[in-house]
Amino acid sequence: MNAPAYNFAYLDEQTKRMIRRAILKAIAIPGYQVPFASREMPMPYGWGTGGVQVTAAILGPQDVLKVIDQGSDDTTNAISIRKFFAKTAGVATTTSTEEATVIQTRHRIPEASLHANQVLVYQVPIPEPLRFLEPRETETRRMHALAEYGLMHVKLYEDIARFGHIATAYAYPVKVNARYVMDPSPTPKFDNPKMDNCPALQLFGAGREKRIYAIPPHTKVVSLDFEDHPFEPYRFNAPCALCGAENSYLDEIVTDDKGSRMFVCSDTDYCEGRQAAGHHGALSAAPYKDKAQGKAREKANG
């Protein structure tokens, strides 16, 4: 089943050790970006090479892997990464948040609350939150070292000056453990509160930028804001059209070329779970129930 040419989880053991050392260091210094020797992966940069390397380094044969892309288990990227590890590591895969022990994600945190013994691995395109205003790497490193974070507020100030409110909707900067300012990867700011005091370990991998950082379980994560413009999570003001959820993060789906649209949960597992439990949205149809039950679990390659 495992192609004999591959080591377990694709990467060779030395590389995995190197990445694990970086991960340990990242956990020891919450929010600090640890450089690591990122490898070429069999996928293009921007497709999750950082996340895949972190996942490969922490995956054990007993793990159950879930991969989501913008909350969805069934997009091309999520499926191919899931299959990649099913093939190279032979681990069990799932779409259930509850069942997974390792969840690799691009741009979302699952709606179901995470628990201890879970690891959330984020794919990160640009790990440096200060990059927007300060192009020099030497300077941003110094700013982190000296905790000079005034510049972060300059970005938020610009938002308010331009739009009347903090318009940054994703990659919303957070302060971790009252020390390092961190880019939470382009997750919607709706997910920011989930990072705070989270029982699961959160790891961030940026392949092209060669950085790994982490939030250990139960770490304080605060979204930056102004006293008179406090942080506010944002979601479309509508229930999910399929499961009727009032407090999940929604995707806007355009349904024709006349401007019709529907809002549905971005977390497909959550949405399907709710529908299976009998919740209904305005546009849900009966067949969804069966389909949801039929697709809820899947063990790849047994």
Partner: peptide, 27 residues
């Protein structure tokens, strides 16, 4: 100066750097 950010933020940056955290007062 930071040529790409607004004049207000250019002036306010030093205040934010020393911990000013009230948009209205910075402005």
């Amino acid at each position: 100066l930071r040529m790409a950010v607004s004049a207000g933020a250019n002036v306010g940056e030093r205040l934010m750097a020393v911990g000013w955290n009230h948009y209205g007062r910075i402005r």
